[in-house]
Design a protein around this nucleic acid. Structure first.
Lengths: 341, 341
DNA sequence: TTGAAAGCGCTAACAT
DNA sequence: ATGTTAGCGCTTTCAA
C-alpha cells in the first residue's frame, strides 16, 4: 500500500526486475506480471499504476527468463556462406525488417563454407534455443556445409534451394530474364545474344532457358565466367568471328555487362545505338557506373529476405506455411543502355 | 543405481535436459552438472560415464537457463548503419571468428540510420541480455542513431569513432596513405597528385594529410565525391587545365581510381607507363577489374572485426581493455597499376 | 481481482 | 565425491 518506500533504487547497477516493480507498486509479482502482459485479468486502475511504475523505474523484462518458460527465444539464426556481403546483407536486412517489430532478433553466422565453422555456429544457435534458422547462400544450388534437415526447429531457405519439405524463397530467374528480353524486344531489338556465367550454376541455366524461349531461332548463349573479363573476351570472340553482330546483348550479370559495354566501346561500337545491353543484379557499384548506366534486372533481395522472415514468423507461431519453392518476381531497373526511357 | 531404465527416450520430441542425463547416469542433477562443467570435483570414473551418456542421448545444455544464472548470455549485438554490406559483412565475419570458439554469437542489427529502428533493435538486444554491443558504420565520423553511452554493458566501436572512454578500432588511414605514397615514391614517381572523396569525411582528411606530409611541395589534393564519376571529372579538369601532368595519382577510393584509370585511357594516357595509379579499399569487384588491375590499400576489415571481437571478449570477462582509439595497420595489395612488382 | 506457489533448466553453496 | 537445497527472473495454474 505505501508507495513512498524508495527502497527501489538500492543497488543502482542492478537491472530492475519484476520484483522491483511489484514491490514499488505494492502488489504481488503475479499481479505485476499480469498487469504488464495479461489482458483483462487485472483491475484497470492497478494495471495503469503498475505500468506507470514499471516505466518510471525503467523496468524491462528479462527475455531470457521469459524464454525459458515460454520456450520461445524470439531469436533466429541466419547461416550464410557469404563473407563478402553483396547478397547476404540486403537479405538479412529484409529479414530483420520483418522481425524486429515482433521483438525477434537474428544471429548472423558467416560460415565461409567451412563445415567445422558451420557446425560450431549451428550448435551455438541450438543451445541458445533459436526459434528457427534461415539458410542463405551465394548461389541457389549450394549444399549447406552442415546438415540442416534433422533439426528440431523450422528451417527456411532464402536464395538457396532446400529440401522439398522446407519453405524456400528464391528470385524468379526465368521471369527476370523474360523481363530483360521482352524489354529489348519491345524496343525493336531483334537479334539478341545472351552472354552469361558458368553453366553449372542453376541460375545461369534458368535464365538462359527463359531467354531461349523468347529469343527465337537466333538464340545463342555464351556461357563463361561470372566476371568482367569474360564480358570482354566474349565480345572479342564475337567480333573476330565475323558473324553479323547482334542488335542487343542480354548479360547474365552486371559484371559481365560491364565488360561487354567496355569492350564494345573499345571496338568502336556505341551502346545503345549500335548494340543495346541489359544486365542482371542491379549491383549499384557496377550498374550505375557503366557508360552508359546499365538497364538491369533487380532480384529484390531485401523483399526476398522479408518474405523469408515473415514465413519464419508464421512457422514459429505454429501457423501453416507452404513448403517448397516460392519464386519471387524480379524487377527491371531502366537506365540508359537500351535507349532512353 | 540401476542404469538400464531406458525411460530416457520418452517424449522423443522434447530436448534432453540435464535431468535426463542425471537419471540415465544414476546420479543427482548436481553431480551431472559438475561432471559436465566442473573440474576435479567429481570422480573421474563418474565423470566419464556422465559425459558418455550425455553424448549418447544427445544432451546439449540450454544456454538460456545457464545464462539466467550466470548473467552472461554469450551473445553480443552488432549495430550497423550499413545495409549494403561492403564494410559490415567482412567486419562481422571477423567479429564472429573471434567469438565463435568461445560460444559467443552475434546479433546483427541493420538500422539503416533510422533512430526508431535503432531504438527497437537496441531494446531487443538489452532485453536479451547481450553481454556487449559493437557499433560499426560506413564512415568513421558517424554519430550512432541511438545513444550508446549510458548502457549497462560495454560498447566497442569498430570502423566508427566512439567516446574517449570506449575502445575504438579503426583502420590507420594515415599509415595506409603513407603506404601508397611511399610505394609510388620508391618506384621513382615524383609528382604525385591525390584525388579523393568528400572533405567532410574524416578518413578523407586523414589520408590527405598523410599524403601532404610525404608528397612535398607539389602536393595537391582534389576533394570531390566518392564516385567513379568524380574520377573521370577530376582527370578531365586536370588535362584541360594544361598543367604538366602528374607522374602518379593516389586515389582516395577504388571507385575513384577506376574512374581515373578509365578517363586516363580515354585521353590516350597509359597506366602505369604514363601515369601510375594507386587506390584505396581493395574492393575486389572494382580493384581487380580495372585495366590494368589496381594496386590499392586494404583496410583489413576482417582483422579489424576480429580485434573488436577480442576486445569485447576481454571486456565481458572483466579484463581491462584500453579505452580510446586503436589504429590498425592497412596493407598494400600490389597489382599492376604502378608498374610490375 | 489478486496472491501463493510451482517450475522452466540450470549452477552453486552447503551439507553429507 | 555426491546429494540437497536454493534461486536466476519470469509466467501460469489454482485458491482465496
Amino acid at each position: 500500500m505505501g508507495q513512498g518506500s524508495s527502497s527501489v533504487s538500492e543497488e543502482p547497477g542492478r537491472r530492475r526486475t519484476i520484483r522491483d516493480v511489484a514491490k514499488a507498486a505494492g502488489v504481488s509479482i503475479a499481479t505485476a506480471s499480469n498487469a504488464l502482459n495479461g489482458m483483462g485479468r487485472t483491475n484497470a486502475e492497478t494495471r495503469e499504476r503498475v505500468r506507470r511504475i514499471a516505466d518510471e523505474i525503467g523496468f524491462r523484462p528479462n527475455a531470457l527468463a521469459r524464454s525459458l518458460l515460454t520456450r520461445r527465444s524470439h531469436s533466429i539464426g541466419i547461416i550464410t556462406n557469404d563473407t563478402y556481403g553483396r547478397l547476404t546483407l540486403p537479405m538479412s536486412a529484409g529479414v530483420s525488417e520483418a522481425l524486429v517489430d515482433h521483438g525477434v532478433s537474428a544471429f548472423l553466422c558467416a560460415t565461409n563454407n567451412d563445415p567445422r565453422l558451420a557446425q560450431l555456429h549451428l550448435e551455438a544457435l541450438l543451445d541458445k534455443q533459436v526459434d528457427g534458422i534461415i539458410f542463405t547462400a551465394t548461389r541457389l544450388d549450394l549444399t549447406p556445409p552442415v546438415d540442416l534437415t534433422r533439426l528440431p526447429i523450422p528451417v527456411v531457405y532464402a536464395f538457396a534451394i532446400g529440401p522439398e519439405t522446407a519453405p524456400t524463397f528464391i528470385p524468379d530467374d526465368a521471369q527476370g530474364a523474360r523481363l530483360a528480353v521482352r524489354h529489348l524486344q519491345e524496343r525493336g531489338y531483334r537479334r539478341i545474344l545472351h552472354i552469361t556465367g558458368q553453366e553449372d550454376y542453376l541460375a545461369a541455366r534458368l535464365r538462359a532457358e527463359a531467354y531461349r524461349d523468347l529469343a527465337g531461332e537466333q538464340a545463342e548463349v555464351m556461357f563463361g565466367a561470372w566476371s568482367e573479363e569474360w564480358g570482354h573476351e566474349a565480345v572479342r570472340r564475337l567480333i573476330s568471328s565475323g558473324r553479323p553482330r547482334p542488335e542487343a546483348i542480354f548479360c547474365g550479370s552486371d559484371e559481365i555487362a560491364r565488360g561487354v559495354i567496355d569492350s564494345l566501346r573499345d571496338h568502336g561500337l556505341k551502346v545503345p545505338e549500335d548494340v543495346a545491353v541489359v544486365g542482371f543484379d542491379n549491383w549499384q557499384v557496377v550498374a550505375a557506373q557503366t557508360r552508359p548506366p546499365l538497364t538491369t534486372v533487380d532480384m529484390e533481395l531485401k523483399e526476398l529476405g522479408r518474405r523469408a522472415g515473415l514465413a519464419m514468423l508464421d512457422l514459429t507461431r505454429g501457423l501453416p506455411v507452404a513448403p517448397g519453392i516460392t519464386r519471387l518476381p524480379c524487377s527491371l531497373v531502366t537506365r540508359r543502355s537500351c535507349g532512353l526511357a
